[in-house]
Amino acid sequence: MEVRTIKVFTTVDNINLHTQVVDMSMTYGQQFGPTYLDGADVTKIKPHNSHEGKTFYVLPNDDTLRVEAFEYYHTTDPSFLGRYMSALNHTKKWKYPQVNGLTSIKWADNNCYLATALLTLQQIELKFNPPALQDAYYRARAGEAANFCALILAYCNKTVGELGDVRETMSYLFQHANLDSCKRVLNVVCKTCGQQQTTLKGVEAVMYMGTLSYEQFKKGVQIPCTCGKQATKYLVQQESPFVMMSAPPAQYELKHGTFTCASEYTGNYQCGHYKHITSKETLYCIDGALLTKSSEYKGPITDVFYKENSYTTTIK
């Protein structure tokens, strides 16, 4: 009895394709271990004539594949690729409408935090270190965002349907971005203890939790000093293409032309909904596939993004 075979390709990165001759009487799992086709788990399936010449994702289970996976995804987590594939199996079914010149995501599976993050990423200057993220990001900007969303979920250790947080998501993504040249110098002034300067680099240099107003941050924000008295913390120097200011959701007025974009969060910790506000020729609110415009805006804002380049204080 002759062994019926077909020729397929296996890959971990969709760049390096490895030619395989597979036995049609055995499952993919018996031949390769966990195997995925377009995100779908085909591990328990036997090869079919229609699979001839198709590319299958496999887990990096030998040295060659491990090197290829690390170079593309910059992670050695053995569960990463499987999590990416199972997320992709959902995100490829989502709709990605162009809204006001940006790629958004039609609401499904509690994905409003991903839509808000995706919209924000198209408006701030950011370059990702893992080629996987950078490639998928370019495709997302062009309207094909399924891979990018699935990668975000995998890097953030999230599953489809789980509630997510924009600030946490951005923080994970910033860790995989090139923020080497970003720098922030802060000064804390206390009447009792004097003053202390701190220099922050990388992710810490672009994120701040405690106030939404970048102007206020430049002037000074009140913080408790270690001595128990009130101290003032203010920005001395900022070198970065953008800054992200966050605070627990509270009524906040966004003035046209003073910011790049913002995240609105309605609801409580267990259950809520994100919308995205962007400042173009007027203010726009993007909620999944829905767009509304207004000249002014007041609502429960939790993150505001500002364009920056270089700032030095005039406070002496």
Results as ranks from 00 to 15, higher is better:
Glu2Lys: 08
Glu2Phe: 12
Glu2Cys: 14
Val3Leu: 13
Arg4Gln: 12
Thr5His: 15
Thr5Asn: 11
Ile6Val: 09
Lys7Cys: 07
Lys7Val: 09
Val8Phe: 02
Val8Leu: 00
Val8Cys: 12
Val8Thr: 06
Thr10Ile: 15
Thr11Trp: 02
Ile15Asn: 15
Leu17Met: 10
Leu17Thr: 04
Leu17Val: 06
His18Arg: 12
Thr19Asn: 14
Gln20Met: 09
Gln20Arg: 14
Gln20His: 11
Val21Phe: 09
Val22Pro: 06
Met24Ile: 12
Met26Trp: 09
Met26Asn: 00
Tyr28Cys: 02
Tyr28Pro: 02
Gly29Val: 01
Gln30Gly: 09
Phe32Thr: 15
Gly33Lys: 02
Tyr36Lys: 03
Leu37Glu: 15
Leu37Gly: 05
Leu37Cys: 14
Leu37Ser: 09
Asp38Ile: 04
Asp38Glu: 11
Asp38Met: 10
Gly39Gln: 02
Ala40Asp: 14
Ala40Cys: 13
Ala40Val: 12
Val42Tyr: 14
Thr43Gly: 09
Thr43Ser: 15
Ile45Ala: 11
Lys46Ser: 13
Lys46Asn: 12
Lys46Gln: 05
Pro47Gly: 03
Pro47Asp: 01
His48Val: 12
Gly53Ser: 08
Lys54Trp: 11
Thr55His: 06
Phe56Arg: 01
Phe56Asn: 05
Tyr57Asn: 14
Val58Arg: 11
Leu59Ala: 07
Pro60Arg: 08
Asn61Leu: 11
Asn61Ile: 06
Asp63Gln: 09
Asp63Ala: 15
Asp63Met: 10
Arg66Gln: 06
Val67Ile: 07
Val67Thr: 15
Glu68His: 06
Ala69Asn: 05
Phe70Ile: 09
Phe70Asp: 14
Glu71Trp: 04
Tyr72Pro: 04
His74Asn: 05
His74Ala: 05
Thr76Asn: 11
Pro78Phe: 07
Pro78Trp: 07
Pro78Ala: 14
Ser79Tyr: 05
Phe80Ile: 03
Phe80Ser: 01
Phe80Lys: 01
Leu81Ala: 06
Leu81His: 13
Leu81Ser: 01
Gly82Asp: 15
Gly82Ala: 14
Gly82Asn: 13
Arg83Gln: 07
Ser86Leu: 12
Leu88Thr: 00
Asn89Arg: 07
Asn89Gln: 09
His90Asn: 07
Lys92Gly: 06
Lys92Pro: 00
Lys92Ser: 10
Lys93Cys: 08
Lys93Gly: 04
Tyr96His: 04
Val99Ser: 05
Val99Thr: 12
Asn100Arg: 09
Leu102Arg: 00
Thr103Ala: 03
Ser104Arg: 00
Ile105Pro: 01
Ile105Gly: 04
Lys106Tyr: 06
Ala108Asp: 05
Ala108Gly: 00
Asn110Lys: 08
Asn111Tyr: 06
Asn111Gly: 03
Cys112His: 08
Tyr113Cys: 06
Tyr113Asn: 03
Leu114Thr: 04
Leu114Ala: 01
Ala117Cys: 15
Leu118Tyr: 03
Leu119Arg: 00
Thr120Tyr: 04
Thr120Asn: 05
Leu121Gly: 03
Leu121Met: 07
Gln123Gly: 02
Gln123Val: 03
Glu125Asp: 00
Lys127Val: 12
Asn129Pro: 01
Asn129Lys: 06
Pro130Asp: 00
Leu133Thr: 02
Gln134Glu: 05
Ala136Glu: 09
Ala136Ser: 08
Tyr137Ala: 04
Tyr137Ser: 05
Arg139Asp: 14
Arg139Gln: 11
Ala142Gly: 09
Gly143His: 02
Gly143Asp: 01
Glu144Met: 05
Ala145Leu: 03
Ala145Arg: 01
Ala146Phe: 01
Leu151Met: 03
Leu151Tyr: 02
Leu151Asn: 00
Ile152Thr: 11
Leu153His: 02
Ala154Leu: 01
Ala154Val: 01
Tyr155Val: 01
Tyr155Thr: 01
Cys156Met: 10
Asn157Asp: 07
Asn157Gln: 15
Lys158Tyr: 14
Thr159Met: 12
Val160Tyr: 04
Gly161Leu: 00
Gly161Ala: 02
Glu162Ala: 12
Gly164Thr: 00
Gly164Lys: 03
Asp165Val: 12
Val166Gly: 00
Val166Thr: 05
Val166Asn: 05
Arg167Asp: 06
Arg167Glu: 07
Glu168Ala: 13
Ser171Asn: 08
Tyr172Trp: 11
Leu173Asn: 03
Gln175Ile: 04
Gln175Thr: 11
His176Ser: 03
His176Glu: 02
His176Trp: 09
Ala177His: 05
Ala177Ser: 08
Asn178Phe: 01
Leu179Ile: 08
Asp180Phe: 06
Asp180Leu: 09
Ser181Ala: 13
Val185Glu: 01
Val185Asp: 01
Leu186Met: 14
Asn187Trp: 11
Val188Ile: 15
Val188Phe: 09
Val189Lys: 12
Thr192Asn: 06
Gln195Tyr: 10
Gln195Thr: 11
Gln196Cys: 11
Gln196Glu: 09
Gln197Tyr: 08
Gln197Ser: 09
Thr198Phe: 09
Thr198Gly: 05
Thr198His: 06
Thr199His: 08
Thr199Gly: 05
Lys201Gly: 06
Lys201Phe: 11
Gly202Asp: 08
Val203Asn: 09
Val203Trp: 13
Glu204His: 08
Val206Cys: 09
Tyr208Thr: 03
Tyr208Val: 05
Tyr208Pro: 11
Met209Thr: 06
Met209Asp: 12
Met209Gln: 10
Leu212Glu: 07
Leu212Phe: 05
Tyr214Asp: 04
Glu215Lys: 07
Gln216Phe: 00
Gln216Ser: 11
Lys218Gln: 14
Lys219Arg: 10
Lys219Ser: 11
Lys219Gln: 10
Lys219Leu: 07
Val221His: 07
Gln222Cys: 09
Ile223Ser: 15
Pro224Leu: 13
Pro224Trp: 13
Cys225Gln: 03
Cys227Lys: 08
Gly228Phe: 01
Gly228Tyr: 04
Lys229Gly: 14
Lys229Asn: 15
Gln230Asn: 06
Ala231Thr: 02
Ala231Val: 05
Ala231Glu: 02
Thr232Ile: 14
Thr232Leu: 12
Lys233Thr: 12
Tyr234Glu: 04
Tyr234Asp: 06
Leu235Trp: 07
Leu235Phe: 04
Gln237Cys: 05
Gln238Ala: 04
Glu239Pro: 05
Ser240Arg: 04
Phe242His: 04
Phe242Thr: 06
Val243Pro: 06
Val243Tyr: 04
Ser246Val: 03
Ser246Thr: 07
Ser246Phe: 02
Ser246Lys: 02
Pro248Val: 11
Pro249Trp: 02
Ala250Arg: 08
Gln251Asn: 15
Tyr252Ser: 00
Glu253Lys: 07
Gly257Gln: 06
Thr258Pro: 03
Thr258Glu: 11
Phe259Asp: 05
Phe259Ile: 05
Thr260Arg: 05
Ala262Asn: 06
Ala262His: 06
Glu264Val: 08
Tyr265Trp: 08
Thr266Gln: 13
Thr266Ile: 14
Gly267Trp: 06
Asn268Gln: 09
Asn268Met: 09
Asn268Trp: 05
Asn268Glu: 09
Tyr269Ile: 12
Tyr269Pro: 09
Gln270Val: 06
Gln270Gly: 12
Cys271Ser: 12
Gly272Asp: 03
Gly272Asn: 07
His273Lys: 14
His273Cys: 07
Lys275Ala: 08
Lys275Met: 02
Lys275Asn: 13
Lys275Ser: 05
His276Glu: 03
His276Ala: 02
His276Gln: 07
Thr278Val: 10
Thr278Asn: 07
Thr278Ser: 09
Lys280Leu: 14
Thr282Arg: 10
Leu283Cys: 08
Leu283Asp: 07
Tyr284Ser: 08
Cys285Val: 15
Cys285Ala: 11
Ile286Trp: 04
Asp287Ala: 02
Ala289Gly: 05
Leu290Asp: 13
Leu290Phe: 14
Leu290Trp: 10
Leu291Phe: 14
Thr292Gln: 09
Thr292Tyr: 11
Lys293Thr: 13
Lys293Val: 11
Lys293Gln: 14
Ser295Phe: 11
Ser295Asp: 14
Tyr297Leu: 06
Tyr297Met: 05
Tyr297Gln: 08
Tyr297Lys: 05
Lys298Tyr: 11
Gly299Ser: 05
Gly299Thr: 04
Pro300Val: 15
Thr302Asp: 04
Asp303Ala: 12
Asp303Lys: 05
Asp303Phe: 00
Asp303Cys: 13
Phe305Thr: 05
Tyr306Ile: 06
Tyr306Gly: 05
Lys307Trp: 06
Lys307Ser: 13
Lys307Val: 13
Glu308Pro: 10
Glu308Thr: 13
Asn309Phe: 11
Asn309Glu: 14
Asn309Thr: 13
Ser310Ala: 13
Ser310Phe: 14
Tyr311Phe: 08
Tyr311Lys: 12
Tyr311Asp: 09
Thr312Glu: 13
Thr312Asp: 14
Thr314Lys: 15
Thr314Gly: 12
Ile315Pro: 15
Ile315Thr: 13
